[in-house]
Design a protein around this nucleic acid. Structure first.
Lengths: 123, 123
DNA sequence: AATCAAACTTGCATTTTGCAAGTTTAATTC
DNA sequence: GAATTAAACTTGCAAAATGCAAGTTTGATT
């Protein structure tokens, strides 16, 4: 029954940008948040089926971390967890918006991607 | 004279958010951009002296990558490089702003940090 | 010409991520 | 209510990214 010790997230400095990156500046966290915000995903298996193919151990690790941080929270028993963004988590939306805008302008990404998603979600 | 091969950055998906994270979603890139945008830094040694203590190999790697991507560019000869943000790089500013706003609201970061910086820089 | 120092480079340890399995236990089916 | 299913993890090991402490190279300064 080895629960991973709740490791304190280290701050590299007092800069608000640096601090935020220390929370969600890894390869996967913001994509999980995106799936919640734009795709309405709530469960482990839904997150697992993203186009970017996150692996199970990383997904689990991120869900635990994001929950510990307080960006997401779950309801339901341990085998039917439903994750939701907290108030704090929803405050990440402007970040995702600006990241998406940059991506639509500069990357070779499919520019219709988020537009379609938003339409589907009535956003 | 081993130049590191210009490795193509892999896209995990067509999502603009994912694509942007594939470009600058590592532990250090946005902090270098921050130093250019808010602190007016332009040289290797200035970047090296950040509060977050980036190490020399990582800094060099990121400067090469960001230059290859086209977010920054340098003038000057190889021993007195002056880096500047490109038009594309300056388009990251809204991302840094929203990240900073989140950090000021939610992290235990020094809330005066960026305010002071901006005042100093007349932003 | 000698010295300095800015801009890298190298080697190796540690941490994070990726991949392919396996395990546990609520919920469903029979 | 026992057997089956599947959602939510867990584990082990390989690969990649990061961290650290040196060293090297080459324009600029003395």
């Amino acid at each position: 029954m080895k629960k991973q010790a709740k490791k304190v997230i280290e701050k590299r400095s007092e800069c608000p940008i640096s601090c935020t990156m220390d929370l969600v500046g890894d390869k996967w966290s913001l994509l999980i948040i995106r799936d919640m915000l734009y795709l309405g995903k709530t469960t482990y298996n839904e997150f697992l089926k993203s186009n970017e193919s996150i692996s199970t151990n990383i997904l689990n690790d991120r869900l635990v971390k994001l929950t510990e941080i307080g960006l997401i929270a779950y309801t339901g028993n341990s085998k039917r967890k439903k994750y939701e963004l907290t108030k704090m988590g929803r405050d990440l939306k402007p970040i995702l918006e600006s990241v998406a805008i940059f991506g639509m302008k500069h990357s070779t990404a499919d520019k219709a991607f988020l537009q379609n998603v938003k339409k589907k979600m009535n956003l």
